[in-house]
Every structure is written in C-alpha cells, then in structure tokens.
C-alpha cells in the first residue's frame, strides 16, 4: 500500500479523513478529535461573520423597521432610494474628504516625525511612547476634549488665545466650510502616531547597503530620501495608508461627539448616517443598504488603490 504523504500545511482533519477511508474504524477514531476542534470555530465563523453578512444583504431588499411590526419584500426600492438621497450623497462626499485629506496629512507628518526620531541616538523609546499616547485614548474622549473643549468657539482656549492676540474667533464647528477641517484636525491629532509607529518600524528595518552605496556615490539629504529612502519605504507606506484610509472610511466617533454630523449635513459621515438610520430611526432595511453601499465603495477603493500601487511595491521589493 502506497502511503500518501501529508502536505505540511494540510489540515490535520483532512488527512485523517482521507486515512479513514483507507484504514477503516481505526482512522474513524482519529477523525473524531479533528471535527471536535474544528466545528466550534466553523460554527462561530458562520454565526458571527457569514450569517450577519448574508442576513444584512437580505435586509437591503426589505422595509424592515425595528419601530414598526411587519417586514415586507421591497425589491430594489432601498437601492433606488440611494440615488435620490441627498444626505447619503453628502455623507459619501464628506467621508471621501475625511479619508483623503486626513490620511495624506497623517502620512506626511507621521513620516516626518519618524525620520526625525530615527536621527536620535538616545531617547527613541521615549518619543515612541509619547507619540503613541493619543492613539491609546478613546476617540470619543478625543472628540470631547480636543474637538469640543479646545475648539469651543466661545469658551475654548484656542479661540481665547486668538482673541488675546487680536485674531477673530474661528467658527471651528459652526461653519459648514470649517467644520470638516476641524474633524480632520482632531483625527490627525489622534492618528498621526499610527503612521509614525508603522513608518518608524519600516525605516528601522531598511537595509544599510543601499544607503552606504549612495553615500559613496555622493548622495545626501533630499536626494538620499527621494531616491533611496522613499522608494524602499513604498511597501510599508502602501500598507499604512491602506489601513488608515480603510479606518477613516468608517469614521463615526469623532464626528458624533464633535458635531453630530452638522451643521446641517456638513460633517455627516456614511457610518454616522447608517447609525442614525438603523439605531435612531430603526430603519434597518435602508440602513443596511447604505452600509452595503459603503462596503462596495471601500472594496472598489481598495482594489483601485492596490492596482495603482502594485508596480511601485514590486519595484521596491
């Protein structure tokens, strides 16, 4: 009898199952523990991921509202409603703004800080810890302390300082043109450290040889950064920007605490809109539809982003 070698990565249960077919009752005993250990995990995945995913997709075709009894199939009504919903469209525009602007600023500042800290021979740990602190604070607390207290237009210290030096108070959250920028400022305050940590780790792991060769060739300063450091950091940068931007697509906490989506809908994010629809108004059907629209948007974004950056990553690696 030929023994079929088991692949190293092949699951234990799969190998035992195949063996059971060949060696009868003895192998059946061996099969039992594998199922015992695998089934709970499989059930958990089905219950917690796949079932809600499928159920919520199904909800998009219904008029299910938690506040009223009865559910009816409504076909594509909810999807059609998206196209005439000005609040949804505004929330998409706001979310894209938050994502693009905040990610870009956080990346630039995070990279600059990482490069600066990399130059320091002593105290790197200290700065790493200091820069990590904002990331450890609850976003709701950041929204309240940074967003509402510091930026309070009549009682906050920032406007008070501006008033004392003769500058007119800034309408941080009451002006529809200014409010999205105030959200970005608070997000940058909190999450630049995320970029900093990832990029610093990336910089520390870069090989020394290309830098030494470039220095021998006379490169320094900006040239060294533009031609060696930055290209080598592309894989880490692509990952950091992707993770951060995916998080920003789901922004809700800062917005809810700082502006509640206002004034008007000037800072309404898609996730805040979903929260409002589903949990405040009980409109689960349409809330699920908006959530799925966001999912489609995020998937499209991720695919395009990865396609655009693939060549740069390949070159760097």
């Amino acid at each position: 009898m030929r023994v079929v070698p088991r692949h190293r990565s092949q699951p234990l249960g799969a190998a035992s199952s195949r063996g059971a077919e060949r060696s009868g009752a003895g192998a059946a005993v061996a099969h039992a523990p594998a199922g015992f250990f695998l089934n709970p995990a499989a059930i958990i995945v089905v219950l917690l991921s796949i079932f809600p995913f499928v159920l919520s997709l199904g909800m998009t075709f219904t008029n299910w509202n938690l506040l009223y009894p009865g559910v009816a199939f409504r076909g594509l009504d909810n999807w059609a409603r998206l196209f005439g919903d000005a609040t949804f469209q505004r929330s998409v525009a706001n979310t894209v703004f938050f994502t693009v602007v905040a990610t870009a600023i956080e990346y630039v500042i995070g990279f600059a800080l990482a490069l600066l800290v990399l130059q320091i021979e002593r105290g790197q740990r200290f700065f790493r810890l200091i820069f990590l602190i904002p990331m450890m604070i609850s976003p709701a607390a950041v929204g309240y302390v940074v967003g509402r207290m510091l930026f309070s237009e009549t009682q906050g210290p920032i406007n008070d300082l501006l008033y004392r030096v003769g500058i007119s108070p800034v309408p941080w959250t009451s002006n529809p043109a200014m409010a999205p920028w105030t959200i970005v400022i608070a997000d940058v305050w909190q999450w630049t450290s995320f970029m900093f940590v990832l990029l610093l780790a990336g910089l520390q792991s870069l090989p020394h040889e290309p830098f030494e060769a470039a220095r021998i060739d006379g490169a320094s300063g900006w040239k060294l950064f533009a031609q060696i450091t930055f290209p080598l950091m592309v894989p880490v940068s692509v990952t950091a920007v992707l993770i951060r931007s995916l998080e920003l697509f789901k922004l809700i906490d800062l917005v809810r605490v700082m502006t509640g989506g206002g004034p008007g809908t000037a800072t309404e994010s898609v996730t805040l809109y979903v929260y409002d629809l589903a949990l405040n108004r009980g409109d689960m059907g349409y809330g699920a539809t908006v959530a799925y629209a966001l999912l489609i948007l995020v998937v499209l974004y991720a695919l395009i982003y990865l396609a655009l950056t693939r060549r740069a990553v390949a070159n760097a690696t």
């Binding site: 506040l67 529809p176 000037a266």
Partner: peptide, 22 residues
C-alpha cells in the same frame, strides 16, 4: 405620529442648511 424621527431629521437638516447659508 410614527416616523417622527424621520420627519424630525429631514426638517432639522433643512433648517440648519438655511441657518448656515447652504
């Protein structure tokens, strides 16, 4: 009446748009 949350949000969006000049 039922739907008060929906009526309210639609009205509040409109009012705040007018108040902020949108």
């Amino acid at each position: 009446i039922p739907g008060i949350q929906d009526y309210k949000d639609a009205l509040e969006i409109a009012v705040t748009k007018a108040l902020t000049g949108e």
